[in-house]
């Protein structure tokens, strides 16, 4: 009998069991709450799930599942753990330099531009964009839509309050990105926090949006989706790229993270990288 068990049932390793528990829980979460993590990249999802678990009072995910499926507040706590994203203002300064020098000149040829930050986290990138557009004289001629899956993160993005110790790095990034003013003009320091200049929030709309299940945003001229799809498996990446594509006007720009690319994607032929390794892609006019 013992041999039978050994060879037949009960032979999963601890690690395989955790994978199975994640799979079962994600299916349940999708059916109960409509959040779809079933196509997230395994390794990073597992890391976040085990971290959440180790900070909880549950021994296993199976044990947690019963309450996660019944208690929305507990699920929201998990959601925060799964979707946590850290960002910084002017992350990858060379990218913002490319935006300033190569993309904004195109945007200036339109009377009005619409920009979408898909997966904006706590808003750092969207505020960086607002600063860039102001310095390039586009005030009053744009609207920025910044979306994230997590309502709590969106609330914090709207506040625009960041720990003061982060500002040193933000300032360095800003300068390396070719900033034209003094970065201190864009925030007010209070105690150990910095509050972003509220006037940067004009024409900046924060909203919740779930890339995995929600519909597209119409007619954007520029879409930034940086370091968001690295958490998705290939099939979800294709799905989300299609969503971004159908939200982007012909001749518009799609920006990905430093280690992401459109190579080998179904839509690759519809885009040209404006120059190698910028991860800034322009949508061709001839593509449906």
């Amino acid at each position: 009998m013992r041999e039978y068990w050994k060879n037949g049932w009960g032979t999963m390793t601890a690690s395989e069991l955790i994978d199975l528990e994640i799979k079962l829980l994600m299916e349940g979460i999708f059916q109960v709450y409509g959040y779809d993590f079933r196509e997230y990249a395994e390794a990073s999802l597992r890391r976040r799930m085990t971290q959440w678990l180790s900070g909880s009072s549950f021994a296993t995910l199976s044990e947690a599942q019963s309450r996660l499926l019944r208690e929305p507040a507990l699920f929201e706590n998990l959601l925060r753990g799964i979707t946590v994203n850290v960002s910084e203002m002017f992350r990858d300064p060379s990218f913002f330099k490319v935006l300033r020098e190569r993309v904004i000149p195109h945007l200036k040829t339109y009377p009005f531009v619409r920009i979408w930050h898909a997966g904006c986290s706590t808003g750092e990138e969207a505020y960086s964009m607002a600063i860039l557009l102001r310095e390039e004289g586009m005030q009053g001629r744009y609207r920025i839509y910044a979306t994230d899956i997590d309502a709590e993160v969106i609330r914090r993005a709207q506040e625009g309050i960041y720990p003061l110790q982060e500002l040193q790095r933000f300032t360095r990034n800003y300068q390396q990105a070719g900033g034209k003013a003094s970065f201190a003009d864009y925030y007010t320091a209070r105690y150990n926090r910095a509050i972003i200049d509220p006037s940067l929030r004009e024409n900046l709309v924060f909203a919740t949006h779930n890339l995995a299940v929600d519909a597209d945003f119409g007619e954007m001229h520029l879409i930034l989706c940086r370091n968001v799809m690295i958490y998705f498996n290939p099939s979800l990446k294709e799905k989300v790229l299609n969503l971004l594509h159908s939200s982007l006007t012909p001749g518009g720009f799609l920006c990905l993270g430093a280690k992401e690319s459109l190579n080998y994607r179904q839509l690759a032929s519809c885009y040209n990288e404006i120059s190698p390794r910028t991860q800034v892609y322009r949508r061709s006019y001839g593509c449906p």
Partner: peptide
């Protein structure tokens, strides 16, 4: 961060 999955696929993350 660099991670690897069971099928031998590399995954990157910007977790803290």
């Amino acid at each position: 961060h660099l991670l690897v999955e069971r099928r031998g696929i590399l995954v990157l993350s910007v977790d803290p």
